[in-house]
Nucleic acid binder design. Structure first.
Lengths: 191, 191, 191, 191
DNA sequence: GATGAATGAGCGTTCATTCAT
DNA sequence: CATGAATGAACGCTCATTCAT
């Protein structure tokens, strides 16, 4: 069913993502999606077998394409603490700038679309670049000796919460708030 | 005459809560809910005006009733660090033992049921008992001088994440994992 | 099922009649009827087998009890024209003063309650007292030689229309209007 | 693409009209209507917002389209009495041939569909062509000097009743019956 | 391929009727 | 008898999906 008009696939997925963040996964109607994407209802079904497949494709699209909008460049020779700080900040910014991303995922895992699907929720902690930095920090005895996956989880938990509140209150994170956040993060994991 | 059984409100709400955690807010069908609660479809409509009101009532039920399952007793003369540790543990356990609670809330805020409602998402951070302990800790110079609400947010972010993973993987938190978690938490906020 | 408490039967029928005139036969709900009559829903079912029977009983109640509110006394020795005039006026007043009566009948014949019932719409023209006066008038050569039932029908058609408009516009019939009406009526049928 | 078929509006309205005459306004089920019109249930909702709107549209359709099936031609130079006779006959025939018309209107005004609607029952007597003939007759001193609207009302009352009985008994009006009817009508209004 | 009118299974809700008290 | 909470069949309406153009 996939055709050469790959831009239409992107258009539909992006539109779906935007709408889901706005009205929720449950509220998404195929006809509304088509209208907002500027195509006919039937057209959606040319590119996606049904709503199930569309949502699932959206999931793969998000998890595999990634965001990679990281603005802060991490220099190879930055000290580890600075690397982690920049990485954490990028992670936070990604979450704040792409709230649809997490909005969708949060809903997806609890939705019938995920449940019907046999696939398991991936715990791709290792994919987080922060994972490797933490392992590296442990090698340098800068970071607590402990299950690095657990540390990543705690760090991400904090950052996710900051992002969620920032998005919800529509206030950006002030420099002071960011310094406080990183201070708690770093003091928490440093050895 | 059969007397109006007010426990049916509880029964229906509890059943709804269980089902929503299992099949999602979007997948909840009034007839299924009635069947699982052991009543007729019409009976649900005696106690709740419509699905909208049912969901909304469930929200108020959860936010106002609270869980209060905290098993670990906090002694008045415990040192502050111990108090926080026990409280954090209780918070974690509540979240793990009542996964439907957060499962519902997470979905509710993104659902049409919340959106149609004019009410705003309350950010009742001060209601968290942990808030008062942190303020107390700051008074004793045990905890970083910083916006206590922000600290609470970071701490809850960590604990929420731990609970989420624990529920998802169906593994309880080992003593070692808990010690690690609290270590990061405490080192992060202590002054 | 009929019990000695015949007043409750009357109460329910009268309440039903009032409500049907107000909200229509289709809009009548058994629970509303019970509430407005001041009894419990189940009580209605003690006196009437089901809604079908209730409506049918209401029909028999109206057609057999009659209204007999005729205020103008017809003297035995009035001239025929005066007798007919008084009778027509009584017929008109009955229709105006009991608008629920015709409101119900009009709806009944077109409703599923009548249709399901095998009974035929009775054409009990002979029951109209006016019928006998017209036959008498024909014997006296005062009234056109023609099918008396047809004449009754035409006369009733006029009076029904006058009553309908009077009820709808909530204006009573002025003496001048009544004189005009009877003039048309009498000139139409007199020989 | 199937082109939107505006004749479907007519088809659905006509089918609804037929069914309402048969089973009553209250008995009309959207699914039955769709089936009898030969379309799917959902299709009805493409052309009409809901049952309420459908019924209301049917009302406007009937009152604005009119019947205009008058078969008897009225010649310009017919004497007034003949003109009125032909017009009365046309009015009668219209009522007999389109019994659904009056069957619907009679039910509509007493139904919840009309009551919920703010609109008032129009009493457009002047729209009746017979009104103008009666005024003309009064100018020629052929017809009683009296409120012409009231005369129209009486005349229509008679004819409505004749039509109603004819439809109900399924017997057409014989020439003798018609002559009698018009005799009563004319003698009633002539001066 | 693209369109959007048409479809109909399925859900939310109502209300005549029953029945435990 | 009286009550009104409980019942569940049946209706109004929605929306994912199809298909004639």
């Amino acid at each position: 069913m996939r055709t050469k008009d790959e831009t239409k696939v992107q258009l539909i997925l992006q539109t779906a993502l935007k709408m889901i963040a706005r009205i929720g996964l449950a509220g998404l109607k195929m006809s509304d999606l088509a209208k907002e994407a500027g195509v006919a209802t039937g057209t959606v079904y040319i590119y996606f077998e049904d709503k199930n497949h569309l949502i699932r494709e959206l999931y793969f699209y998000l998890t595999h394409v990634g965001t990679n909008n990281s603005t802060q460049q991490i220099a190879e020779n930055d000290p580890l603490k600075i690397k982690i700080k920049k990485l954490a900040r990028n992670y936070l910014d990604d979450n704040i700038n792409n709230p649809e991303h997490s909005a969708f995922l949060e809903q997806y895992f609890r939705s019938p679309y995920f449940q019907e699907n046999g696939s398991n929720r991936p715990e791709e902690v290792q994919l987080q670049p922060i994972y490797h930095l933490i392992v590296e920090g442990q090698r340098q005895s800068l970071i607590k000796e402990a299950d690095p996956e657990w540390l990543v989880m705690l760090v991400c938990g904090m950052l996710n919460e900051v992002a969620k509140v920032s998005v919800y209150t529509k206030k950006s994170v002030t420099p002071a708030e960011w310094e406080l956040t990183f201070s708690v993060l770093w003091d928490g994991i440093k050895s």
